[in-house]
Amino acid sequence: MELIGVSFFTLVAIGFGIIAYVTAKILRPRRPGYEKNLSYECGEDAQGSPYVRLSIKYYIIALLFLIFGVELVLIIPWITTLPDKNWFMYFSGLIFIGLLILGLAYEWKKGDLDWNEKTAEPENRD
């Protein structure tokens, strides 16, 4: 039953967007021109492809997020067992969290959490 409510929310949100688009479509002018259709690049003509190469950091952040996301899925059932005061279950969960903390510490030590690369000392700049 709750999912019916949620799907109504989805419909209302998308419907609102479409209604707003249609209203704007009726009201607004449409006079495209060469310069209007250029990508914005501070008044210059755009150079090269917009799909520039990206830092590998973004992928590492996404991977770390995935690890912690999976951790959430495993920990929530564990939390529901806490009121039973079963120490065996508690420590098995703790081992998992300990591994997670170890992983985070490893990433930290490896320098993946520093956004700025530790650039090597400039050697051949005499």
Binding site: T10, A13, I14, F16, G17, I18, A20, Y21, T23, A24, L27, R28, P29, R30, R31, P32, K36, N37, L38, S39, Y40
Partner: peptide, 26 residues
């Protein structure tokens, strides 16, 4: 804003540029 012309770069994807504000709002 309702009366402003809808400008988008020539090479942008028409469907996705229209869909993304709705997805964010959703």
């Amino acid at each position: 804003l309702l009366q402003k012309e809808d400008m988008r770069p020539g090479h942008s994807d028409r469907f996705l540029t229209s869909a993304s504000p709705i997805v964010v709002f959703l």
